[in-house]
C-alpha cells in the first residue's frame, strides 16, 4: 500500500508526534465485534504540525453536533484505535462520562493537551476518543501500559487540571484486557 510521509510545512510548528484522525459510526442494533469495528472505522487525515492540525480540525463537525453512535479518534500515527494493536494490547484507558452539551469543549481541550505534550508521561499516550451516545457522551484517553500506576495516576491528574472537570465527575480506569473480556466498552 502507498504510504505518504507527513511532515511539517515550511515555517510551521512541528508536533512531538504525528497524529491521525479516525471516525467511526456503529449501528447499535448490530452486535459489536472487532471485525465490524475495523470495517466501520476510517482514517481521514494525519498531521505533523500545529498548523496542519487546525486545518483538519476546523473542517470537522463538532462532536457534540453528531448524532447516534459516532466516535472521533485522534491517535499517534501508526497506532490503530483498537485494543488488538501492538501499542494498545497491554494498555488501558481513563473514561470520563459527560452529560450532553459538554463533549465538544472537553474534546478540544483533551486533544490540545495531548498534542502539546502536557501529560509528561514519555511515550505512554496512544490517543484519545470522544464517543457520542444517546444519553451521555464519553471521553477516553488510552495509554500503553495499564499496569504502570505512576503513569496512569499522572494522566488522571493532568486530565483533571487541563479539563477543569466538574467536581462530581467520575473517572474510571479500564484495561483493554477487561474490555476484551466483557466485549463491551460503551
Amino acid at each position: 500500500s502507498k504510504y505518504k510521509v507527513v511532515v511539517p510545512g515550511t515555517g510551521e510548528h512541528p508536533l512531538q508526534y504525528n497524529y491521525t484522525f479516525w471516525y467511526s459510526r456503529r449501528i447499535p442494533s448490530r452486535p459489536a465485534s472487532s471485525q465490524n469495528y475495523e470495517q466501520n472505522i476510517k482514517q481521514f487525515g494525519t498531521v505533523a504540525s500545529v498548523e496542519q492540525f487546525w486545518r483538519v480540525y476546523s473542517h470537522l463537525v463538532r462532536p457534540g453536533d453528531l448524532s447516534g453512535y459516532s466516535d472521533f479518534h485522534l491517535f499517534k500515527e501508526g497506532i490503530k484505535p483498537m485494543w488488538e494493536d501492538e501499542a494498545n494490547k497491554n494498555g488501558g484507558k481513563w473514561i470520563i462520562r459527560l452529560r450532553k452539551g459538554l463533549a465538544s469543549r472537553f474534546w478540544e481541550n483533551i486533544i490540545l493537551a495531548m498534542m502539546g505534550e502536557q501529560f509528561m508521561v514519555g511515550e505512554e499516550i496512544c490517543g484519545v476518543v470522544v464517543s457520542i451516545r444517546f444519553q451521555e457522551d464519553i471521553l477516553s484517553i488510552w495509554n500503553k501500559t495499564a499496569s504502570d500506576q505512576v503513569t496512569t495516576a499522572r494522566i488522571r491528574d493532568t486530565l483533571r487540571r487541563v479539563l477543569n472537570l466538574p467536581p462530581n465527575t467520575i473517572m474510571e480506569y479500564k484495561t483493554h484486557t477487561d474490555s476484551l473480556k466483557d466485549n463491551s466498552s460503551f
Binding site: H13, L15, G116
Partner: peptide, 21 residues
C-alpha cells in the same frame, strides 16, 4: 530527549494566525 511542549494558549494563537510565524 527534548520534547516539544505547547500550552493551550499558544495552540489557540496558532489557530488564529493565518500565516505560520
Amino acid at each position: 530527549g527534548t520534547r516539544i511542549i505547547y500550552d493551550r494558549k499558544f495552540l489557540m494563537e496558532c489557530r488564529n494566525s493565518p500565516v505560520a510565524k
